[in-house]
Nucleic acid binder design. Structure first.
Lengths: 116, 116, 116, 116
DNA sequence: TTTT
DNA sequence: TTTT
């Protein structure tokens, strides 16, 4: 079945790189992605999307990107759930990155050129 | 910023259609999307992805689709959070559908034709 | 740079499988993809999109699909150009498939559930 | 049927803005999109993808972008054909833009962070 | 709360 | 836990 995601957004903090027990690099980042439309009272909201990166992609992103960096991510949505300490079921959704592209770090004035 | 999702999967239950106070139709569905790869022990896992549909898209999907229907969804990831009764912060991620395509209901033998 | 395509459409003819001089399987297919909107005079038009498949993807698609099959393709747009016999420059654009998913063969009543 | 494209690339020249007989703005641009992989002899090739923009999207892109600008485009592939003066059938494929996002103009050091 |  |  098809499951494809493409994001361009800004890192909310430095990538958090770790290694699994068997030595696989893994990093988690959160992308702030401003919406292209406003609420009824004119506010631009932002979605905060968690992404999981593996291996070289994780290491390279940790090396080249930091809080505020603009990156493009392609990947797929993944879901899982677990029970927390209090026995409550917690549902987790994030994006498993297949590729990451570094798009810059400057106070970049990205600008929406569409109107429908 | 860019935020695009494309999914093809199966409804885990009948669409749940409601109306907001001001009369907007809204439906929630969950798509079961089998992964295209197996775990290290050969299991095909499935992601369960919640989608929110509005207006005509919500009504049409509720009319034409049911548990087991295969649909294609394009849209964007949205996130929000709230505090539950016990004061715990709950993070919610789902897909805001922009279009929905009905792709059939049969015991459809979808088959992956890729190998990398 | 980012270049991602997702298509669901119908094969206009049986896949055409060949092998390169060094034994790589390659297949060309054309996908008929009906548009989700009508012309000003109410006609639904169709785009005919050429796709190139390689290796296992080519062989599996040739084995499992035929004229009329509905498939999903993810991949990227590629362009090239050459001069024909009369010295005229010919520009060619097609989709390099990264994955192909077989979605059925029946006279499938795919139905658009969106309206904006 | 599904037909979705997402591109991030660089304008090969200034947008070419025109108006149809009935006053609709339309612009054509070509995006240079470097591939994320090399040929067998280590060359990074580039695809040159024609895009058609309409109305506000056309006008805004013509106003804010120029040769070298990096933009993100979402849209769909469209195909058409015609006979040229010599009676030869010419097939044309381009991307009908649904949204355009301006991502900067600097000699932007976009960098691929993936490896597969 | 999960579909075939 | 949120970026500019």
């Amino acid at each position: 079945m098809i499951n494809n995601v493409i994001l361009v957004g800004r890192l909310t903090k430095d990538p958090d790189l770790r290694y699994t027990a068997d030595g696989q690099a893994v990093a988690n980042v959160t992308l702030a992605v401003a919406r292209n439309f406003k609420t009824s009272d004119g506010v631009v909201e932002t979605d905060f999307i968690n992404c999981t990166l593996w291996r070289k992609t994780a290491e390279n992103t940790a090396n080249y990107c930091k809080k505020g960096s603009v990156i493009g991510v392609t990947g797929r949505i993944q879901t899982r759930n677990y029970e927390n300490e209090t026995g409550q079921k917690i549902y987790v959704t994030d994006v498993l990155a297949e590729s990451v592209k570094f798009l810059g770090t400057k106070p970049q004035q990205s600008r929406e050129l569409v109107e429908n």
